[in-house]
Design a protein around this nucleic acid. Structure first.
Length: 589
RNA sequence: GGUUACGUAGCUCAAUAAGGAUAGAGCAACUGCCUUCUAAGCAGUUGGUUGCAGGUUCGAAUCCUGCCGUGACCA
């Protein structure tokens, strides 16, 4: 229980002028720096109830609380604020009670089941910065839910079928039949992505030629031989043509090998993978059943629609007139399949905000189809990652590639480390690990510290910082703490609670006690930036303390033990918190 | 045109769910601090009409209304 909850609970039993307080909307918060005290009650609302001067009400309430709680040292009333000051012993005892490993919250026998989907790439292109945001949001949220007691299934849904992969297939058959990622030494996903780009080039040339012959754009697209072969490939694929399927499998396999490598480097893991090629048929079937039930209707051309009969939601297509499915159809199939397979209590889709409308509609449709679990669906929506002059565009080659960016971060970490002269006794391999961990941490933290709802503007010309509010700063703070711990190995004594605390120490303990509520609020808001900012603030407060107060050189042994314990608790929470965000720490740097 | 999200210091962000005290950090710029625990650090200076105008309230960056701007989606 943290100190605010503690005060809250005692308020229930307090009567003021023979009226019980009952915590009616009495807000309690930590006292701001400027005033003396630890916890503040905002007592303005009591004015209306008691119709007495605030000063008097505050005094009365303060006295009552002080009588009930022995650890209240003093209190003061300023305007409508009642500030309570705690005794040092309270904090000293609090720290003694904190144990490392404390933060496995809710070790109940029954763990509710969370399925969380993230990444969900197409198979025609390598992953880019947008995917990185998606992956680390999903990964960190799944870690958070795991600590608060959920059983978590991490999944990705791969969009492995459709016109886009057919384009790569056609271009590869035309230009690169004998080539493979192995014999060209190109990473698999980049290899396939290259043919996607080649395809677009071929198509553009052909269309330009047709336009110059006087056709309009849609005529040109119809007449284009290369587009014809794409459509032919898609048709063959849907009909299960062996040769087409073989090529499809071959290219997708290369892509998966490439993705695998990127995920490994980023530290992203999955418990299972789902493929749209497996679920779109179920989606179609359910839609057809929905027609029988009168939920959907068929137009004269055979296409299937839903009408929301609502001013803000428009009617929506579910099956095209040729019977092929759209994204919505596939997502219906995928959701139903998931709930058939597992007793899911919560399903989170980590998908960009451009799909807000899509998911709103998907959830409504599943409700109308009569699935009671539609209430368990959540869309973790996040803003786009843009460049200073707008969207990343693959056609203009402005897409920030995930692999390139990670390598760039690695190299920057290397050059900064060298400049600082910190490369003393490491092997080459250790050095590589060091740069990798520093670089990836800086990248991840840069993205995670921003509220997911906001869009991020990433300027490729400006490098991501390694000082200030960064992942590196937190790693560095942790390394300092590790070094302190090594130098104080032999000291394992407990301190006694007779010592007095300075303001640095008090501030830190107050922050430590908030950790659990921070984690819960991350889960409630689906927002890891809350944790990222908390960790930074804790690290900052620790550096304040570290720079101004001696730990190992402290003469008073009792104080020294206390400070070592305090530092190591900070270290523990920094590490634990960063790991929840999916960022690794370093013991030395 | 409709729906929705966002708008805070030169730049990047925090505080907004659930209103609270003089709106906090970092970067950039400038000034100090390594013969005691890692200077990727610490201390300090400069920088704000919280897009604009109203409203509710003891109290508004936060809630409400209208407008302006930007993005996304739907058409």
């Amino acid at each position: 229980m943290n100190s605010i909850k503690c005060i809250k609970s005692v308020l229930k039993d307090i009567k003021l002028y023979s009226i019980s307080i009952d915590t009616f909307e009495l807000e309690i918060q930590y006292t701001i720096k400027k005033y003396k005290g630890d916890v503040t009650l905002i007592i303005f609302p009591l004015l209306k109830i008691f119709k007495k001067p605030l000063k008097e009400i505050g005094q009365e309430l303060g006295n009552n609380i002080k009588k009930k709680l022995s650890f209240i040292k003093s209190f003061n009333v300023i305007n409508g604020f009642l500030n309570l000051e705690f005794k040092d012993e309270y904090y000293l005892e609090l720290l003694l009670k904190m144990k490392q490993g404390l933060f496995k919250i809710n070790k109940k026998k029954h763990r509710p089941l969370l399925m969380i989907e993230y990444s969900s790439p197409n198979t025609n292109k390598p992953l880019h910065l947008g995917h990185i945001r998606n992956c680390i949001l999903g990964q960190s949220m799944s870690n958070i839910f795991d600590t608060i007691g959920y059983k978590v299934i991490r999944t990705q849904l791969i969009n492995d079928r459709g016109i886009h992969i057919c384009k790569s297939m056609v271009a590869w058959q035309k230009l690169g039949q004998s080539k493979t990622p192995q014999n060209t030494n190109i990473k698999g996903d980049h290899f396939v992505g290259k043919y996607y780009v080649e395809f677009e080039n071929l198509k553009r040339k052909e269309i330009e030629r047709l336009l110059s012959l006087g056709y309009n754009y849609s005529e040109a697209e119809k007449k284009s031989t290369i587009m014809q072969s794409v459509r032919e490939t898609l048709r063959k694929w849907e009909n299960g043509d062996n040769y087409t399927i073989e090529i499809w499998n071959k290219l997708n396999k290369w892509v998966y090998e490439g993705f695998e490598e990127t995920y490994r480097r980023l530290g992203i893991t999955f418990d299972e993978v789902q493929y749209e090629s497996n679920t779109y048929i179920l989606g179609k079937k359910i839609v057809k059943e929905g027609i029988q039930k009168g939920i959907f209707y068929k137009k004269y051309d055979g296409s299937v629609w839903i009408d929301f009969k609502n001013q803000t939601l428009n009617r929506k297509l579910l099956l095209r007139s040729d019977g092929t499915s759209v994204y919505l159809t596939q997502d219906i199939g995928t959701a139903v399949e998931r709930f058939r397979k597992y007793p899911i209590d919560k399903l989170i889709y980590t998908v960009g905000e451009e799909q807000n409308y899509h998911f709103k509609i998907l959830f409504i449709i599943l409700n109308r189809l009569g699935y009671p679990w539609y209430k368990k669906l959540f869309h973790l929506s996040y803003g786009m990652v843009n460049l200073p002059d707008g969207k990343m565009k693959s056609r203009e080659g402005t897409v920030v590639d995930a692999d390139d960016l990670m390598s760039k971060m690695h190299n920057t970490a290397m050059s900064i480390t060298q400049k600082l002269g910190k490369l003393k006794k490491c092997s080459k391999q250790e050095q590589y690990q060091l740069f990798e961990k520093i670089g990836i941490a800086a990248l991840k933290y840069y993205i995670l510290k921003v509220n997911p709802k906001k869009s991020i503007i990433f300027d490729p010309m400006e490098s991501i910082d390694f000082k200030g509010c960064t992942g590196t700063y937190i790693q560095y703070t942790y390394a300092r703490i590790c070094s302190l711990k090594i130098k104080s190995m032999q000291i394992k004594k407990k301190y006694d609670i007779s010592i007095s605390l300075n303001m640095y120490e008090r501030t830190i303990i107050k922050m430590l006690e908030q950790y659990i509520s921070i984690i819960k609020s991350v889960a409630n808001n689906l927002d890891p930036s809350i944790l990222a900012n908390y960790i930074y603030n804790l690290a900052k407060k620790f550096n304040d303390f570290y720079q101004n107060i001696n730990v190992i050189y402290e003469i008073n042994e009792n104080k020294k033990y206390f400070r070592i314990k305090l530092s190591s608790m900070v270290g523990y929470i920094l590490k634990n918190g960063m790991e929840l965000l999916g960022i690794s720490m370093l013991e030395r740097m």
